[in-house]
């Protein structure tokens, strides 16, 4: 099988608690309005869109933090669309996620070593300490960092811990949700280069959610552009940048302020 994910007719709606009547159920808003796409094995897929485009919701559906309302998500041929938590558990090792805000995604009461080791223990890995050490090596952090707390690290270092936790499980697929948007350009470059290297060395498949097409161009082989819960463009990266088809893609590209005072910006 060449594809790791196959998504067909994906719809997802969430309850809108702000409009919940006093009695009865809250109305549902449709976030994803019928998505069809596949993620080939070994691809680095960029998912781009503005706020409210549904890109994070799509990501959370892929790793089944959210349950779709209809349609299907197949991971390695298994239909995971409506699997219960118990049935998902053995699969969870194989699709991992790196979160946007490393400060909130790393439990502040646990040390870095414990944070990376916990998923390993849950999935019954042996030799946990050595695996934690190797994961830290992979992301370029000194092994001594295992004894530190998240708040003792810089933003870039925390994000590396998030990456180490994900790769320690030796997953086949990783979802990265806006993982560089809170970082300074230098840390951003470091994390992107690191991620690119890991994808190559570990043979990972990666879905990279971002609002920033510049970053996507640097890392991804294929791009999905989302607009208001629908896919407006799904192309090879080079083709998309050379000749954007959808009006929204062009608008996104035109809006990016290049670091160049001579760029016309109308």
């Amino acid at each position: 099988m060449t594809e790791i994910y196959r998504v067909e007719g994906l719809h997802l709606s969430l309850a809108d608690m702000t409009r919940k009547p006093l009695l009865g159920a809250a109305p549902r808003i449709e976030i994803l309005k019928g998505l069809d796409f596949t993620i080939p094995r070994g691809a680095v897929l960029g998912i781009v869109g503005g706020s409210g485009s549904g890109k994070s919701t799509l990501g959370r559906a892929l790793v089944r933090l959210l349950e779709p309302s209809s349609g299907s998500i197949r991971f390695e041929g298994t239909d995971i669309t409506h699997l219960g938590e118990a049935a998902l558990r053995p699969l969870r090792r194989r699709f991992q996620m790196i979160f946007q805000d490393p400060m909130s995604s790393l439990n502040p009461r646990h040390r870095v070593g414990g944070i990376i080791a916990a998923p390993l223990r849950l999935h019954g890995f042996d030799d946990v300490a050595a695996r934690v050490g190797r994961a830290l090596d992979h992301v370029g952090l000194p092994r001594g960092f295992a004894a530190r707390y998240p708040h003792e690290l810089s933003g870039g270092q925390r994000q590396r811990v998030g990456i180490a936790r994900a790769i320690a499980l030796e997953p086949e697929f990783i979802l990265a949700d806006e993982i560089v948007s809170g970082l300074d350009v230098s840390s951003q470059a470091q994390v992107l280069n690191l991620l690119g290297g890991l994808v190559r060395d570990l043979g990972l498949t990666l879905a990279f959610i971002s609002h920033d097409l510049s970053v996507i161009r640097r890392l991804c082989s294929r791009v999905i552009v989302l607009y208001q819960g629908r896919i407006v463009e799904d192309r090879e990266t080079a083709a998309l940048f050379a000749d954007p088809q959808a009006a929204y893609t062009r608008e996104l590209l035109d809006a990016i302020p290049l670091p160049d005072p001579d760029q016309p910006w109308t």
């Binding site: 959370r60 938590e85 558990r89 969870r92 090792r93 439990n107 916990a118």
Partner: peptide, 14 residues
């Protein structure tokens, strides 16, 4: 907080 979602991704029960 995301660390709770992260525990779920790791496969920890409620």
């Amino acid at each position: 907080m995301d660390y709770v979602a992260s525990a779920q991704v790791a496969g920890r029960g409620r």
